[in-house]
């Protein structure tokens, strides 16, 4: 079966103050429909850069990305903007991910308007439906983003990502900034959405324990390279690389 996403030999270096920093070095991976791939690594390992390259927010120097059989890096202008509906993103800090002036309704209406998913008259109803899908009351729609709690805000961010009916959602540390009691709920919501919609996730995190809960497979990154990739439980049980071993050992366990 053709994978949803195929990434081949991506490379990217940043220049910072005269020094060249390798952010991505020969990165290749594939992702199936309805599958979750965890992207784990220490800070500076390139996992966030990879996420941003997949979203066409950062251009790689070389390599190929095939998304639903299409050359994803060749898309330009209007064609790219239209196709962006297929790949959506949820950010780490839900407060920073929304225009400070936005209301929940306006944030959710934007993607519906841009992609012509719903006419002007239909939009309020669709916004209400999106809110219900992420477990929020449609009554919240007129509220400003900064007025609701962090967990509610992240639910709105997920609703915004769902608005365009994407086949892939990139979650960049999407639960790291949330309170522990909220984090579990958001993970449950993401898993439930995947079960009903068959959406694929790329779940970027520095916490292998959280990744294990939600990801079928995991790619361990270090210094811009994927050093190890495979079925999540297997890698946690028998980490093959030093990076994976350190990440597994660093997870705090409850000492009862």
């Amino acid at each position: 079966m053709q994978p949803l996403l195929a990434v081949e030999n991506l490379a990217k270096t940043f220049r910072s103050g005269g020094r060249r920093v390798t952010a991505l070095d020969d990165v290749s991976l594939t992702l199936g429909r309805g599958e979750t791939l965890g992207l784990v690594g220490p800070s500076g390992s390139g996992k966030s850069t990879l996420a941003r390259v997949l979203l066409r927010l950062v251009a790689p120097e070389s390599g190929r990305i095939e998304m639903e059989g299409e050359d994803w890096l060749a898309l330009r202008g209007k064609a790219l903007r239209e196709r962006r509906a297929r790949v959506q993103m949820v950010f780490q800090d839900p407060l920073a991910a929304f225009n400070p002036r936005a209301t929940i309704a306006s944030a959710l209406a934007d993607p519906l308007r841009i992609h012509g998913t719903a006419g002007r008259a239909e939009r309020p109803r669709r916004v209400g439906e999106l809110l219900e899908r992420v477990g929020l009351s449609p009554d919240l729609a007129p509220r400003a983003i900064h007025e609701v709690s962090g967990g509610q805000r992240q639910r709105v961010a997920i609703a915004r990502a769902l608005a365009t009916n994407p086949s892939l959602i990139v979650l960049d540390e999407a639960v790291s900034a949330l309170d522990v009691s909220v984090r579990g709920r958001i993970l449950e919501l993401l898993a439930a959405i995947q079960k009903t919609d068959g959406v694929s996730y790329i779940f970027v995190s520095h916490d292998v324990a959280v990744v294990r809960v939600i990801a079928h497979r995991v790619a361990i990154m270090d210094a811009g390279r994927i050093v190890e990739m495979g079925e999540t439980e297997g890698i946690i049980r028998e980490p093959g690389s030093a990076t994976a071993r350190a990440l597994v050992a660093a997870v705090p366990r409850l000492h009862r």
Partner: peptide, 14 residues
């Protein structure tokens, strides 16, 4: 460089 501008690009805003 803020996230909400990246978010606007991701949803395909002109």
């Amino acid at each position: 460089e803020r996230d909400y501008v990246a978010a606007a690009r991701v949803i395909g805003m002109h």
